[in-house]
Amino acid sequence: MAKKTDEQIDARVARMHRDYLHNVVTETKKQPTTIAKLLNISPSTLTRIYKPKDGQISKMSAGTLARLEEFSGLAAPSFEPEPQKQPADFREDATRYEADTSDTTMASMIQAIIGNKKNIDPWVIRSRSLECAGFMPGDVVLVDLSTTPRAGEPACAQVYNWRGGTAETVMRILEPPYLVAATFDPALRKPLLVDDDRVIVKGLILPHRLRPRPN
Rank of each mutant, 00 (worst) to 15 (best):
K3D: 14
R209Q: 09
E70G: 07
P122T: 02
Y50A: 12
R172N: 00
A66E: 09
P43L: 11
I49G: 08
C132E: 05
P212T: 10
M16P: 03
L192E: 04
N116R: 15
A2T: 07
L74D: 03
D100W: 01
K37V: 14
V201R: 01
L206A: 04
V140M: 05
E69D: 08
I205K: 05
D144K: 11
M16T: 03
A112C: 10
D197L: 08
I125Y: 00
D121P: 07
S129N: 07
I120R: 01
T183Y: 01
D139L: 10
P32E: 11
I173W: 02
R91D: 00
L192M: 13
R12P: 00
R18S: 08
H208R: 08
K3H: 15
R198W: 00
P137F: 11
A75H: 10
R198S: 02
T101Q: 10
K85M: 09
G115S: 10
G203H: 08
Y178H: 12
N119S: 13
A36N: 08
N40A: 14
R213S: 14
I9P: 02
T104W: 11
L65S: 09
D144M: 09
I57C: 11
P186Y: 15
S146L: 09
I113E: 01
S61P: 04
P149H: 05
I57S: 13
D196K: 08
F184L: 12
Y20G: 12
A167E: 00
A76Q: 08
V140A: 06
D196H: 11
D103W: 14
A75E: 11
S58P: 01
T105E: 13
R189G: 10
L192Y: 03
V194E: 07
V24Y: 02
C156V: 03
L65F: 09
G115A: 09
T101A: 12
R67G: 02
A182P: 04
A36Q: 05
K202A: 02
V170Q: 01
E175L: 12
M60V: 07
K190S: 15
N215H: 11
L210N: 06
A155P: 03
G73P: 14
Q56H: 13
T147M: 09
G165P: 04
R15I: 06
L68C: 06
I205P: 04
E82K: 12
R67A: 13
L74P: 12
I49M: 10
D10A: 15
S108W: 06
Y20T: 06
R198M: 04
Q86G: 01
V143C: 08
P83S: 05
N215A: 14
A94K: 02
A94G: 07
F184P: 01
R172M: 02
E7Y: 10
K117H: 10
K30F: 04
K53I: 14
I35S: 02
R213F: 09
V180M: 12
L145W: 05
V199W: 01
F71A: 11
T5L: 14
A157P: 01
I35L: 08
P177L: 11
A88Q: 09
D93Q: 05
P154F: 09
Q84C: 08
A157G: 02
M1T: 03
L68P: 04
D100M: 07
V180H: 01
L174T: 04
L142H: 04
A112V: 07
V124C: 08
A187K: 12
M109V: 10
T105P: 03
I113D: 00
